[in-house]
Design a protein around this nucleic acid. Structure first.
Lengths: 338, 338
DNA sequence: GCGAATATCGAAATCGGTTTCGATTTATCC
DNA sequence: GGATAAATCGAAACCGATTTCGATATTCGC
């Protein structure tokens, strides 16, 4: 079923059918109704490929998970942002296309994949340092939105949570509860997110006048649980333990807690832990995890609207930073127990 | 950059370039190398829209989350299956397109969305009773694979875990540990998955010669945590409690555990609980959750290969059922403690 | 009722590829 | 060297839409 068949059935020209589908004004109400009826009956849906070819607009948004830190669709934080983004993009009339990261026949970098599919825009999810392939895309004329990734191109923008404020809220909470010896567990130095949280953490520690002990800082290879476990092991083996630990992700925090438990330490009585992200598991762990919630839904919606505006030339890009919220559960205690 | 420009730069015709890109044999090695070099330099990538239009193959796979039970991309079980599917489909040369469920301009049902985008095939993720829109797609000539959804069309197939065996393994485990009074928490009756697990559970209870008490069975509105909490509340209020409970999903189990804890009951000392799915959170909860693991990766890979064969007419559809595995943690105890 | 303005419609070019088939060139053989 | 076969290449139709612009039909004013 194509536009030609519809035209024949309705006894009109192809162009008339096209005009009706695209709300042109120069077609009478009478023929319009007749054609619409036939379209309804046949369930005709115009070919997106043909439409894209003719208009150079595909109504498709490319989704890219960049980086090497195993950040995939399964990531509990990003998948929530993405889901919110997807919904909002849906009401704006776009569908999503997922590029598989596997070495693909067409060989290409992200940019050529985007032109290959004629995407109208794309969202890049990462939280890592910018890689060259992403930079090329950022610098292209394709509208891009970074999620936890600072895109600077002239058709780009980004959304992220305020990592400095996150760290500052954590330190403040620790401080008010009486903790003074503060440690940190982060991801690798390749992660901008982890780096920012660490930098903010250090800054906050200093501004509260607390002593900064590099021996209380450890790093894993990524944001996942085993990395947190391994990093905590190293801290435990080093001899000197902090009294409270901020982990750059909830999973890192959970890994750290597992290591602490295995060493017979109690949380929060011996060591207090605060995570980051507020993934769903936080509510079910033992102890339940005090953490920083990022408004994932809002991040997704903002990303969608920014991208829409970028596509329709209604904005010049920019960035949104959303405020974090402290979610108090058990892993940090409600007061100091010495 | 298009094929015409490449042709001009290389001093050959458009058709020659096309032939080179598609491995035709009637082009000399010399011109082939020359053209390939130019393609390399320019980073040219052929338009997927034009290609799709001409060949009627898009190299795109549609992804559909069907049903009303809030089964979305964020679902901890399905997202793992999907990720594995995505990877495998990637090495087979396909990318994924996500249809947004929101009411879309083009109005349509799933089938017309698929023809709209010329998808080569699609994967339908559900676990619910078949809805009419899915049935239309199933009966169409578009290759479809159901994940936890029994598709019967002549170009369809499905993968799912063996829900009867799941239930049977659970009952056996309960039995060997000495539990005799077995309860169940499921999702709504609209869910085939929940129904199958319940039916298998009942059958296994009977075949072990245990008494079946309908008062120990409860149902929520979906597979999520609050539903498990609510269902458990109803069980608690009913007066008579089972000694062990099988929940049709891990989240239902976690909700039930929360309700039990609030009533001062211990797990597994007072009530043993087994979940289903082995989502990541199981390892971090208190108590850690004994559950049934489904091989999500295998489900995804199988789905990908089945779909590939269906697309290339190398199979007539069918189904794969993967074996479940019991993962023993703390929520069911290691022996009966009366 | 007539000219002008407006409403309605269609022919054809275009988007960027694929593929058939015929033309031309080159190689092969006796 | 000439006939024949094989290798190489290109012209053109086609896929299914959009959009411009010109043609025709209708309405309007007077």
């Amino acid at each position: 079923m194509n536009i030609k068949k519809i035209a024949e059935m309705a006894g009109v020209s192809v162009s008339t059918v096209s005009k009706i589908m695209n709300n042109y004004s120069d077609v009478s109400e009478k023929t319009k109704q007749r054609v619409l009826e036939i379209i309804e009956q046949t369930g005709y849906s115009p070919s997106n490929s043909a439409k894209t070819l003719a208009t150079k607009k595909s109504n498709l948004i490319g989704v890219i998970f960049a980086g090497e830190l195993n950040v995939e669709i399964t990531h509990p934080f990003f998948v929530e942002v993405l889901n919110s983004f997807k919904k909002q993009m849906g009401v704006l009339g776009y569908d999503l296309i997922f590029f598989s990261n596997e070495k693909f026949i067409s060989g290409g970098d992200y940019l050529s994949r985007c032109v290959h599919f004629h995407v109208d825009g794309c969202v890049i999810i990462s939280g890592e340092k910018m890689e060259p392939a992403i930079h090329d895309l950022d610098m292209s004329s394709i509208p891009c939105i970074g999620v936890d990734l600072e895109l600077k191109g002239r058709k780009s923008g980004y959304v992220m949570s305020d990592n400095f404020q996150i760290a500052s809220k954590v330190v403040e909470h620790f401080y008010l509860l009486g903790y003074r010896e503060l440690g940190f567990i982060g991801s690798t130095g390749d992660s901008d997110i982890s780096n920012q949280r660490e930098a903010g953490y250090i800054k906050a520690i200093e501004s509260f006048g607390l002593t900064l002990n590099p021996n209380w800082f450890a790093h894993g290879d990524d944001f996942f649980e085993p990395s947190g476990y391994a990093a905590m092991q190293r801290l435990l083996e080093s001899g000197s333990l902090p009294r409270a630990i901020f982990a750059a992700s909830d999973l890192l925090a959970l890994g750290a807690i597992r290591a602490l438990k295995e060493h017979g330490l109690r949380i929060p009585e011996d060591v207090a832990v605060i995570g980051c992200d507020d993934i769903e598991a936080c509510k079910y762990t033992s102890p339940t995890l005090t953490t920083i919630r990022q408004n994932k839904e809002r991040l997704g919606v903002l990303a969608a609207h920014m991208l829409f505006d970028l596509i329709n030339n209604q904005s010049e890009g920019g960035s949104f930073v959303v405020e974090p919220a402290l979610i108090i559960r058990e892993s940090c205690g409600s007061g100091l127990n010495r």
